[in-house]
Design a protein around this nucleic acid. Structure first.
Lengths: 308, 308
DNA sequence: CCTGATCTATAGGAAATTCCTTCGGACAAC
DNA sequence: GTTGTCCGAAGGAATTTCCTATAGATCAGG
């Protein structure tokens, strides 16, 4: 089968006009070049050089071959460069998984950071829900992600980065004076997000567990998909909701007016962790993992400081 | 050093999604493919597939590599074709189709030309009749031909090269004084060639059509296969015939003695064209097509000049 | 919770290829 | 002639390729 090496030898011979010169240029012995060209001729079933006297004269076939041989070598060189540029994070796409509400914690800033450090790369941040993202990790469609614990998988490296506290959110200040107990939750009119993921969502399961101990089921009056909608409904006084302190923190002044919050007692926490498969991480993922870890830990410290 | 074989294995793996499937497609054992890809990864200093579970997931680097790998393989394939086409011109066989009477226009000279320019090639000139040759073209048994129009086929490239005029030929000078009308043809005692092809032959159909408008059928008294026989019979005074001026011109002094000719009125023309399938023509065919086109056009000019 | 099917990775060895050194023959310049 | 230079052939060492066999991991289904 035609090989690149044969083409290289051929081109060097064509360029330098003799096997000996080509061998010198490529750093081989003359018979090696001679043999490679002979093999090429044999495989192409043609004569590339007429051996005239002690010199070589390229044939018509050699002239026809030359541009394509060059093109092949150029393509291979280009292939090497393309791969190198991905390796050096000059180009390519970085995919990273996030739980849905992660955008309240870091999304925009994270993207800005990555783009600034690696101007050529594309960024894809995917994920609807921690459970779904974990599934993507298992299937290899994602290399790394930040999701809510627990992660019950031996093959995953789990690095907790932020603990957040669940709080009760209401437009009615009267309901925020006391510390909210599971019994209060059971009695309250609630709007909860993550409608499609209620079976697997860790927060929802934690809540349900706590409420169930009071002897009542967790039956939210309203279910919506995303947290912002739930907060808007709460702001209108139609129902109360629960969310993470970090979400309120992240929303800042974008938090619908009139809402207040109170802690739950006993307190309920969710821990978020950077998760990836065991083994080598690609440089691109490494970069994002490090950035996310640093940012989330900063956030964690900031929120703990505010609590104290 | 990067090798084509590695790129082939890589592309097959990417396409089929597993080493096993790629091995099946390329006809190797699975460990061989696995090893080649591993070598490629080692040489590119990157990971091309994440080994997740029992499957493979291509990395960003693999996506970056793919188009260049394809380009390299394509260039090599193209190199092979380029050399092959040169080789064809040096040692190959040229098959070219001709209508039967083409030999009066160019056959011997054409062969001489081709052989002189391309001493290594074999030449085959085939064809009994334009209709038959066209069928060969359609079936792909011939690459190119020169035949009589019309050619009703969308996929053929048609280049008219010569227009010839049908003339009346007789050994009796008395019958050549006037211009011959279709009524004269209907009344005449005729010998016509192309006996086997009378149903499809374009000349025969043109003649039949013209005569039929006089209200009589075209019923030649004698039918033979080839034009020269028809002319010999005409020379003996047994019947008159019709033929192309180009045939008389091409025969020169080999025209049987005693024959004269007169134009038909209205004149009847036949146009000959170089015809080939759309798309690339092999270099060998290209050579013949160019030669035939040039020669026929020269002849066309010569004959028109003589008329004027 | 097994079991069978399926895939990758590894090991070991046979076969082919690559590449070297050495030498012989052809040719051109002096 | 003689000499220098180049191609080609031969033989052998080193490397690469590619196979079979097998172990290890994973997943689907009973």
């Amino acid at each position: 089968m035609l090989s690149l090496h044969q083409l290289r030898c051929f081109l060097a011979t064509l360029e330098h006009g003799s096997f000996t010169a080509a061998a010198g240029a490529l750093g081989y012995a003359q018979p090696s070049i001679s043999e490679q060209v002979r093999l090429l001729e044999q495989q192409l079933d043609t004569t590339l050089f007429r051996r005239v006297g002690r010199g070589l004269v390229p044939t018509e076939a050699a002239r026809a071959l030359q541009p394509h041989a060059s093109a092949a070598l150029a393509a291979v060189a280009e292939a090497g460069r393309a791969v190198a540029s991905v390796r050096e994070l000059l180009t390519g796409t970085v995919r990273f998984g996030l739980f849905r509400t992660a955008r309240f914690y870091l999304t925009a800033d994270l993207v800005a950071d990555v783009l600034q450090r690696h101007p050529g790369v594309r960024v894809e941040l995917v994920g609807q829900n921690s459970a779904e993202v974990l599934e993507h990790l298992r299937k290899g469609r994602l290399e790394a992600a930040v999701i809510a614990l627990p992660v019950e998988d031996e093959n995953m490296v789990v690095t907790p980065v932020l603990r957040d506290e669940l709080v009760y959110v209401s437009a009615d200040p009267a309901r925020l004076h006391t510390r909210i107990t599971p019994a209060d939750l059971a009695a309250a009119q609630l709007v909860l997000p993550d409608a499609s993921w209620r079976e697997t969502d860790t927060t929802r399961r934690q809540l349900a567990q706590a409420v169930q101990r009071t002897g009542h089921p967790l039956r939210p009056r309203i279910e919506v998909e995303d947290t912002e909608t739930a907060l808007e409904i709460a702001a209108r006084g139609l129902a109360d909701t629960v969310t993470w302190r970090g979400v309120l923190h992240g929303l800042g002044d974008r938090l619908p007016a009139g809402l207040g919050w109170a802690p739950l007692r006993p307190a309920m926490y969710e821990t978020f962790a950077v998760v990836h498969r065991e083994g080598e991480l690609s440089p691109a993922s490494r970069v994002v993992v490090d950035l996310v870890t640093a940012r989330m830990r900063d956030l964690d410290r900031a929120m703990r400081a505010r609590t104290a």
